[in-house]
Computed example of a mutant assay.
Amino acid sequence: MTENNGFLNIMDSSVWGGMEQYVYDMSEELEQQGISPFVLTDIGNLEFIDRYSEVATVLPIKLRKNSRYLYVNTVAKFMSEHNIDTILCHTGKFILFALILKKLTGAKVLFFKHNILPAKTDIYHRWIQDQVDGFVCVSKCVYDAQVVKENKEKYHLIYNGINTHRFPQVEVEYKLQDDNFIVGYAGRISIEKGIMELLGAIKILHEQGRGVELRMCGAISEDTLSQINSYIQSNHMEAYVKNLGFKKDVNQFYRTIDCLVVPSKIQEAFGLVICESMYCNTPVITSKSGAQEEIITNGEDGILLDIVEDKTIAHAITYLMDNPIEYEKIRKNAYSRVKSTFTIEKMVASIKQL
């Protein structure tokens, strides 16, 4: 592979989340490692066009529904003009389109697996598995669920990685109230992510007279926001629960909280916000609902919850509050763990090697 070759990510969805940030960070690092990054997205998705234009050359077309097939020759010509030899597909709805482009251009297709779902083995999906050049699984949980015995050699475990350049050491206002232990939540704010149990835990600690404050950071739907606000108001928690909304730059957020709690009740394919917080020297409390156990060793570089309940979360927060020596040990080990294993540099180098 020469330095002039390009990678084309196909990316379009309704909201910006972990997978979308994955492509953004990958594109930025590809440039650093001598590969030209390109992103194919829908012409009507102005947010994605603007964001990805910061780190890649963006080709907007009518990508949604069947309209994309009218533009297959346009994309193939673009790939030829820009020496793009690798297509990176991140969702099944675009894989057939990617394989048609492969047929037209001779490019390789890598299919990235971001979800813990069992592989399908019907005739259509077996054909897909035969045609794709390689599958990239972002965690061992995903790999174990996805790998197909007949094509096992095509499946590769390449851990997700954080863009460490987004998290420099900065001078921050450490706390607004020095007496409070500040608990943070980052990521999509939803019921299945354990947000109501986290609110319940904060309520328990407040009733016990503990000085705690919860700061939530992330995108949220109107329905979820209504439920959360109703709970906060009915329990008179407005003074110590703050919803900060979506933040593009979360470095200062991680560095101004005392711990991050991510009590997800659904299987997580990875844990990007977990790694980000750990890299920022902020301890993490999270559930065992997926790949979190691949990132954290309980009691060494974070705390894992056996059960997501108000009381178990409150107990874990109390442990960090009351054990400063253990807190410091976890904080330092967490940083070392992410720096050694879960960085974007390592991730992109592995993709290039593949």
Rank of each mutant, 00 (worst) to 15 (best):
I317Y: 09
N115E: 15
I330Q: 12
I330C: 07
S27W: 06
A201P: 01
I295F: 03
E328T: 14
H125M: 07
V212M: 05
I266D: 07
I220R: 07
I303W: 08
S14Y: 12
D179V: 14
A219H: 11
R331G: 10
M216Q: 07
C275Q: 11
I87K: 09
K175W: 08
G211I: 14
Y174F: 15
F7W: 11
N4A: 10
D50W: 08
P324T: 15
I128T: 06
L305E: 08
N115W: 08
V15S: 13
A145Y: 15
L244D: 11
H90D: 06
E192V: 06
T91P: 02
D178P: 07
L70A: 14
K65I: 09
N298R: 05
N83C: 10
M237N: 06
S350T: 08
M321Y: 10
Y22M: 12
I313R: 01
Y185V: 02
N243L: 15
V75A: 02
F111E: 10
F48R: 03
V148Y: 13
N151Q: 12
S234R: 11
D144R: 10
T86H: 12
K175Q: 06
V212S: 05
E171W: 05
F112W: 12
S230G: 03
S230L: 04
V212D: 09
P168L: 03
N180Q: 15
E20H: 07
